[in-house]
């Protein structure tokens, strides 16, 4: 755990400052499975896990395949008096096509497919060289920054709950069923949460910085 550091003569490299409340601490990297938490506001500062990099890469790869599949296969099917319709995520995202609503279409497609996919690919790009003990990939810093900036805009899990609500809404109008993509999205949500859990931002920044110094 980190100790409070009233000693201001410490070199800056040995300080860690809470991004949330600006309290400064003497940097001491916790062991695997331990967590360094800001004593003032409770923010988790460092939380390294054993083999976190490998696990994150594995999960990211799985998510990339799931998103691709989930985008193409239908996730909901409807059947009312012989009229059948099956929609994929791409169909749903393009529901707003026509007039100024096209912007909404693009936004929806971005939030459900493009952003989650981009985050996973960026994560893989950044982490693979680090896990292999190679120097960081070119523009790895920019890639990781972008990935972190996109985090709140990745809304695949919200879309899954939206599916469930839409299902109930039209249940009395027609027979509605889940397609294969719905289950893919379900698994995807769990994987994304697991990935967030393994990811320790500080460790990544630290690893990205180290080779440059030497």
């Amino acid at each position: 755990m980190n100790d409070l550091a009233p000693d201001t003569s410490l070199p800056l490299a040995e300080l860690i400052v809470c991004p949330q409340c600006d309290a400064a601490y003497h940097l001491k990297v916790p062991a695997h499975g331990e967590r360094a938490i800001c004593q003032r506001c409770g923010k988790v500062l460092i939380a390294p896990r054993r083999n976190a990099g490998l696990r994150i890469i594995a999960v990211s790869l799985a998510v990339v395949f799931l998103i691709t599949g989930a985008a193409v296969f239908p996730f909901l099917t409807i059947d009312a008096a012989g009229n059948k319709n099956a929609v994929s995520v791409i169909d749903a995202a393009l529901a707003f096509v026509g007039g100024p609503m096209i912007l909404l279409s693009l936004t929806t497609a971005a939030l459900i497919i493009v952003v989650p996919l981009a985050r996973m690919l960026l994560t893989i790009y950044v982490l693979v060289p680090l896990v292999l003990d190679r120097p960081p990939a070119r523009h790895a810093v920019k890639a990781f920054r972008l990935s972190e900036a996109l985090r709140p805009w990745s809304m695949a899990e919200i879309f899954v709950i939206g599916c469930a609500i839409a299902l109930v809404k039209v249940a009395d109008l027609a027979t509605v069923g889940f397609g294969p993509a719905f289950w893919m999205f379900g698994i995807l949500v769990v994987l994304v949460i697991a990935q967030d859990n393994f990811m320790c931002k500080w460790s990544v920044w630290n690893a990205l910085e180290r080779p440059r110094r030497s």
């Binding site: 409807i78 169909d91 529901a95 909404l104 929806t108 939030l111 709140p152 939206g162 839409a166 039209v170």
Partner: peptide, 27 residues
């Protein structure tokens, strides 16, 4: 972010419920 759910429901409904003359939903 969870407020976005309503937009997604509208998107899903308007792409799903396109049953010719029987029923259709538009945003």
């Amino acid at each position: 972010r969870w407020s976005m759910i309503d937009i997604f429901v509208v998107a899903i409904l308007s792409s799903l419920v396109q049953l010719n003359t029987l029923a259709s939903i538009h945003p």
